[in-house]
Design a protein around this nucleic acid. Structure first.
Length: 649
RNA sequence: GCCGAUAUAGCUCAGUGGUAGAGCAACGGUUUUGUAAACCGUAGGUCGUCAGUUCAAGCCUGACUAUCGGCUCCA
């Protein structure tokens, strides 16, 4: 008699085998393991793919139960919260059409086309209320295979859901599924075309918040429909949500634009125009330290420093191709019936310097560096403090080398990047961007350039990620991303290969055998732009710069004006050692002086009263640690000089 | 550039059509202080710009400019 199989075997995360009744779902599996697991179970990692908890398991499946403790569980939650958002929006705004609603870092968004209504922050409150109502209704997420695709497309179209119809048409051969939300009595109340996976019930959404509204385009294409986007976040508990909101607040406090005003770092003015920065003394000092450090390391590492003008005749940009390919980003001017361009890049000038003498193979590599200020027309909506501006200074350099030197040169740049970032205590990681679709240049050039970059990364031993198709049209690149104190990512150094300019300017050098060869040209920047890097430093340190970058390093606070002379004497001793010391001579209480110094984020306060004068010592208060007691002036100077020279963070 | 919001004293913000307000900062005075804010007083504004509606506009309407949240683009 043939036996029907009544049990199946699945393999758990630890590799162990588990027998369960045929037809069991992931939830059944969890139940068979423990009750506490059931409570925390959210979804499955089934044979390496994220799946609903209710997915029916098959014999031989590898199953991992995703619980709330697992970071990937938030994708289930947030994606599902996005669906509830969409349902709520459609309940409130009849005729609203839904586009897409993906999970993003720490949250989600959903795009809508809402005829005749512009969403306001007040609407978010209303929508949140409706979402809460839906959550409380305990709606079930039911996965349904779309059997008849053309029928479903018709249905979407008849409902006006043109975006969903378009998406389904596109994915019709990928076993498309629909997620239906059912109310308590099992009646379908809403659905969305979706691959899933989802949580099982709306009730699992314990803590969510809608954060902002903004504009977006259908398929991120500005020629297509303009949509309204709602951003939100969602967490397993109120505590988690509060912690997240607190983190956002902390980030806002560090915003370099806010600190820029508070700490008198920089300003911008209507009279100068947008995206043009005025560096005030406090930040100008940070910049000069950045520049000095840069100069020192570049000179030590075989770079030669050059200066080039801010404008050049359009002729130059015609040769370089910028006047053709970069036109919409350039500022033009006409003087004495001559056309000039405000430089958007430094490279053509460096190329001209290279070209103005003949080069032997022995001369190479030539590494030419400049802190070059460039101007680029940026569209009006994109400016952002120091991080995105129209005038900025690049720590630019161009390396002209032979093919056989190329990999070593790239390794040299990586080493310099590593060295420079150490001075700021910054973590970073690398990304390799390869040939894009609209690339120019021969395939051999691209292959040479890409394999060379990759080889350099490997030989240097730096981990990297590949971004296929993300290179510049004229060559591949390595990007360095910096991580700040809050874990946020900033664009840092970039290394780019350029086969375009050597061609256009017909660059040559003489080889051993007398033949004329074209040099390889590497374009690189390590800070990227001094403006953006300064923004990063402000936010990373929350304005509390390390000693070597601080404009005011020490402030001396006499307790009464009897100690002013003594305070000035100490200030002079410090100044003799090139330590930037100031005296707060105001007729304020010590508490007020301390508070002001603390708000100014001055690293060291020296407090002197009658006691210190009598004992010829000083009392130190550190910005980070508070009162650290008394010490001698000599010891204090030694401490400071060490901290400065070591660039201690 | 696009979608949406905002623009009041140096800064942060209040002010729903009828004589422009607060706190901090600034300035003057008093206080001489021991580890995050002493006290009193003075001054400071064509309410982003330009037009319109109204007997009357910071407030309503429009255009422009800038900023903010995004999109797109990017160092």
């Amino acid at each position: 008699m043939p036996q029907t199989q009544t049990t199946i075997s699945v393999f758990l995360k630890d590799g162990s085998k588990k027998e369960i009744p045929a037809g069991s779902s992931g939830l059944d599996l969890a139940k068979s393991i423990s009750n506490s697991l059931v409570k925390k179970s959210i979804g499955l990692l089934l044979n390496g793919e994220s799946k609903d908890l209710l997915t029916v398991l098959k014999d031989g499946d590898k199953v991992e139960i995703i619980t709330q403790d697992d970071p990937s569980s938030y994708e289930f939650l947030r994606h599902s919260t996005a669906h509830i958002l969409a349902e709520a929006v459609q309940n409130i705004f009849k005729g609203a059409r839904i586009a897409i609603g993906p999970v993003i870092e720490d949250g989600f968004y959903y795009d809508f086309e809402i005829p005749n209504h512009k969403l306001t922050p007040d609407d978010l409150v209303k929508i949140e209320k409706e979402m809460q109502r839906l959550i409380d209704e305990d709606q079930k997420f039911i996965r349904v295979n779309i059997q008849d695709v053309s029928k479903q497309i018709k249905e979407f179209k008849s409902q006006g859901e043109k975006f969903k119809a378009e998406l389904l048409e596109e994915h019709k051969n990928e076993n498309p599924t629909l997620y239906v939300l059912e109310d308590k009595s099992g009646n379908p109340v809403w659905n969305d075309l979706c691959r899933g996976p989802h949580i099982t019930s709306s009730k699992q959404v314990k803590a969510f918040k809608l954060l902002s509204v903004s504009g977006a385009y259908w398929r991120a294409d500005e020629t297509k429909e303009s949509l309204q986007r709602i951003y939100g976040t969602s967490w397993w508990s109120k505590e988690e949500l509060d912690a997240y909101l607190h983190k956002i607040e902390e980030a806002e406090k560090r915003d370099h634009r806010k600190l820029g005003r508070q700490m008198e770092l920089f300003s911008m003015h209507d009279e100068t125009g947008p995206g043009l920065i005025l560096w005030h003394p406090n930040l100008a000092f940070v910049r000069s330290q950045m520049e000095n450090y840069w100069r020192e390391l570049h000179q030590k590492n075989g770079y030669e420093i050059v200066y080039t003008p801010h404008i050049a005749r359009t002729d130059l940009w015609n040769i370089s191709g910028h006047n053709e390919f970069y036109k919409e980003n350039m500022f033009y001017m006409n003087v004495d019936q001559q056309d000039y361009v405000l430089k958007p890049m430094n490279c053509p000038f460096h190329v001209l310097i290279f070209k103005s003498t003949r080069h032997s193979y022995r001369d190479l590599p030539i590494r030419m560096a400049e802190l070059g200020t460039v101007y680029r027309y940026e569209r009006s909506g994109v400016m952002h403090g120091l991080a995105r501006v129209r005038g900025f200074t690049q720590d630019d350099a161009h390396i002209f080398c032979r093919k056989d030197q190329y990999v070593e040169e790239i390794k040299g740049v990586i080493k310099l990047v590593d060295l420079m970032y150490k001075g700021f205590g910054l973590e970073y990681f690398a990304e390799l961007s390869t040939k894009p679709k609209d690339a120019i240049g021969a395939k051999e050039s691209w292959d040479f350039a890409e394999t060379g970059l990759e080889q350099a990364l490997k030989e240097y031993g730096l981990a990297y990620k590949i971004n296929p198709g993300d290179g510049a049209f004229y060559g591949p690149k390595i990007d360095f991303k910096l991580k700040d104190a809050l874990g946020r990512i900033w664009q840092g150094a970039t290394i780019q290969l350029d086969f375009n300019l050597p061609n256009r300017f017909e660059l040559k050098y003489t080889e051993k055998d007398g033949s004329q060869e074209q040099p390889v040209m590497v374009h690189r920047a390590i800070y990227g732009s001094l403006e953006r890097f300064a923004a990063l430093l402000i936010e990373h340190f929350a304005g509390a710069f390390p000693l070597w970058l601080s404009y005011k390093q020490v402030i001396i606070l006499p307790i009464t004006d009897r100690q002013i002379d003594y305070a000035n004497k100490i200030a002079n001793l410090l100044k003799e050692k090139n330590i930037r010391a100031h005296v707060d001579e105001r007729a304020e209480s010590v508490n007020a002086k301390i508070r002001d110094a603390q708000l100014e984020k001055i690293p060291y306060m020296v407090i002197v009263g009658d006691k210190e004068v009598k004992e010829n010592n000083i009392s130190i208060r550190m910005r980070k640690k508070g009162d650290t007691g008394t010490t001698t002036i000599d010891k204090f100077i030694e401490l400071l000089l060490n901290e400065i020279s070591q660039k201690i963070i």
